[in-house]
Design a protein around this nucleic acid. Structure first.
Lengths: 349, 349
DNA sequence: CACCCGGATTGAAACGTGTCAATAACCTTC
DNA sequence: GAAGGTTATTGACACGTTTCAATCCGGGTG
């Protein structure tokens, strides 16, 4: 049976509430938005009318009138990656405190999808957005700015300060920390396994790694080899293992530094399948410190980012941009921290 | 410097486009929504006016007028869990094909947050929602129905068919498959590690496990012990290990079946820390088959759910409910599949 | 008592879109 | 060439909210 039982409950608006409470619509609106301007007695009367009629505000009406909606977008590189979901939690918690709804949009590492999502935000007249850009081409985001929707860049410290705020983690320092750790363990040939160099973050991590070798008086040109994969997921890491091992035992690197924990986990699996032991035959370092890094065996040595805090900070900045008239664009930089676990060990030839 | 450079670009609406193209606003609206009704020549004229003025539609206007917005909610139990993010991908892909935007809302396993999110959906006059209810109390969702927003239940086969559609996986069969596998390996004492029994899914998995023992002519009352934790995450799994091992080597179970891969991964870590080997000293079975299940060592034996397909199916059903006048509520049931990996082995006393 | 002041409330005018009955233009057919 | 039919376009109104100038009321002051 197809009982299309919509609207059993005639939809009630602000005007009906007003009639029911014996006041004007304007007063009801005031009760909802600036309760301090309305006298106690009438406020109570209106509130009980609201409860009695089961009135729920229509946000289309508000945002049409005010020109802006009360939701912010969170434009994420890949929902599947636990790193981002942790960031999302931070953004969400902070947004809830400001009474803003969060619309999570997934770019799936594809520029075309990012563009579609940006357009969506513009159509919704979103109050603002927290954005992790998919690559160096920021033209969509600048367009979004011109449409009146401002945004905070996440994990992209390189966006110009006149464009918007940014919150990021010092990727150079992270790469360097990983490098120093490996050098300290006696490693002299390291492969940097990465996603596309179009992503600014991974470029900086690479530079940091090289800087560590220079600092130690070694030539990064011979010590660091790069293997680049199209995406930053475990399957890509596993697939890259053959390339990493190419050249045989003499040429093979003594350690792999991955741009991402996801890649690192794939590498560990691939090495295991080929009979190589981590860390005895090869050390592996990841980046992000996702939850699972601590659950695999051996535990994954990795560069930890303050994921949740990153999200919170970004949303806080956005909030200030939206509400404070004298807002000045800001650049917040967190410092990453190396977490040493079992996947790295002293190199024993 | 605080150059608050909003609206460099005066905002343009449908009427301005109409003026620019020399037609009426109604025609512009038709070009946007039912292009087939408007003559080729004028359509092109309007389209070029749109491009020239860089017009972007204001969705508040549309949804105010039409009474419904073009976005659907996805109400998820816990964004952090990779199972849900995979479902989200399915929902998103399918929604994109129908031109619907997806608003991801996180209940964080808390009833109060679910309630807040449901309210938000009602205020936005969302077209519909895909919902994973936090517990057995569906009153918020029934209220949402009365407000005219219909929804599809995900992973909750027990919602009455006159309430809405549902898409789920046969949890009883899943529990049974895990049970048969363990029995086949010779295990006679199994602990079921679970989240709150308020969640219907885990109850059914438990029943399935017991049914497998009955089928084999064994008494589930003595063979199956239950350990219940408040949340379904790795930390809780790790914490539960002491409880599981209580009673010493003679009493201790030979295998642990977890309601969730997250719990299982925590258990594996906990066992490792206490010097117990998986699967030699204890077999572990998970549920969901998240990506990482295949990345840990040993690989986690688990009951696989068609996560992505689950999301797609739910969204497809919702779409039918929204568009087809003769829609009949449907109940889709997928069958789970046991994936055997290294974490289970024959019991050797 | 007249005056004024301040707080509480009102009324009407937008915001941008979709709808639909009404009109206009055009084509066919006798 | 007129009547009838089809297709394309128009205009005006309604959706639910917020805003703001205008009004109302009650009490304090001179």
């Amino acid at each position: 049976m197809s009982t299309r039982s919509r609207s059993t409950h005639r939809v009630v608006g602000i005007t009906e509430v007003a009639r029911h409470a014996g006041v004007s619509p304007g007063t009801v609106s005031n009760v909802l938005n600036r309760p301090e301007r309305v006298a106690e007695a009438t406020r109570l009367r209106v509130e009980s009318a609201i409860a009695e009629l089961d009135y729920v505000r229509n946000s289309s009406g508000s945002s049409l009138r005010s020109g802006r909606s009360a939701s912010v977008g969170l434009l994420v590189l890949d929902v599947t990656n636990p790193f981002f979901t942790e960031v999302a939690r931070g953004v969400e918690d902070e947004a809830a405190e400001s009474g803003l709804a969060v619309v999570l949009l997934n770019s799936a590492e594809a520029h075309e999808r990012q563009q579609r999502n940006v357009r969506l935000l513009a159509e919704q007249r979103a109050a603002g957005a927290v954005v992790m850009p998919v690559d160096d081409d920021l033209s969509d985001l600048l367009w979004l700015n011109r449409q009146g929707t401002s945004w905070v860049a996440l994990d992209r410290g390189d966006v110009a300060e006149d464009v918007g705020c940014s919150v990021s983690v010092d990727n150079h320092a992270g790469g360097m920390a990983a490098g120093r750790h490996l050098i300290g363990l006696g490693h002299e040939r390291v492969t940097f396994l990465t996603g596309p160099f179009a992503i600014e973050q991974v470029r900086r991590r690479h530079e940091g790694l090289r800087a560590a070798f220079e600092e130690a008086g070694m030539d990064p040109g011979t010590a660091v080899r790069v293997v680049e994969q199209p995406l930053l997921n475990p399957a890509q890491g596993e697939r890259a293992v053959d390339t990493i091992l190419a050249g045989g035992p003499r040429q093979r690197p003594q350690a792999v530094f991955c741009a991402n924990d996801q890649l690192a986990l794939g590498v560990m699996k691939g090495l295991g399948q080929r009979g190589l032991r981590v860390p005895d035959d090869m050390s592996v370092v990841g980046y992000d410190n996702v939850d699972i890094a601590d659950l695999v065996h051996p535990g994954l040595t990795t560069v930890a980012q303050p994921k949740y805090e990153l999200g919170r900070a970004a949303m806080r900045l956005l909030d200030s941009e939206l509400n404070e008239a004298d807002h000045v664009h800001e650049r917040v930089l967190f410092t990453p921290e190396l977490v040493v676990r079992g996947s790295t060990a002293v190199y024993r030839p």
